[in-house]
């Protein structure tokens, strides 16, 4: 099962290597790991999607917390969260297919960020399932390249998806 773990870490050299090394050394499975700055320049936030059962997750949380530059660990499993992935995807788009593609992009609330003679680059963000669905829809046109960020998440305040 997939779990989203959020770790606030000190902005120090070697922290990413430490976290990644710990996951590798203990045989934990990372699905994705995103690091970025936070509102406080002293800290970064890591959002880690981990695959494993509850026992594995408990160890992941504890082993993360044990790393000294890791300040706080939160497990978002079983709690309402907003999750987002960002994807840039370049799809083959000969002129005769473009209208069709634009319609799809519209449905997915994506943006065209680059246009070439034979392709379009589209930016899509959303929960992972939406990104996957968009990839599936694009596949028949021919995917030329694809880059994804992995999941970031924050706890949800409102009761439902907005």
């Amino acid at each position: 099962m997939k779990h989203i773990i959020n770790a606030l870490v000190e902005n120090k050299p070697g922290v990413l290597a430490h976290v990644a090394g710990m996951f590798a050394a203990r045989g934990f499975n990372i699905d994705s790991l995103v690091v970025g700055r936070t509102e406080d320049p002293r800290f970064s936030r890591m959002t880690i999607v981990v695959i494993g059962d509850d026992r594995v997750l408990e160890q992941v949380r504890k082993q993360l917390a044990k790393i000294i530059p890791v300040v706080k660990v939160q497990d978002f499993s079983g709690q309402p969260v907003v999750t987002r992935d960002l994807m840039l995807i370049t799809v083959a788009a000969p002129p005769e297919k473009r209208a069709e593609l634009f319609a799809i992009i519209e449905v997915f609330r994506g943006h065209v960020v680059d246009i070439g003679p034979k392709s379009l680059t589209i930016e899509v963000s959303g929960p992972e399932s939406k990104i996957e669905a968009f990839i599936d829809v694009c596949r028949p046109y021919g995917i030329k390249s694809l880059a994804r960020t992995g999941t970031i998440a924050v706890p949800r305040q409102a009761g439902a998806e907005l």
Partner: peptide, 14 residues
């Protein structure tokens, strides 16, 4: 050195 010893120390730093 910090890379080599990271998994075998409680903490290390340069």
């Amino acid at each position: 050195t910090t890379g080599i010893t990271r998994p075998i120390t409680k903490y290390n730093c340069l």
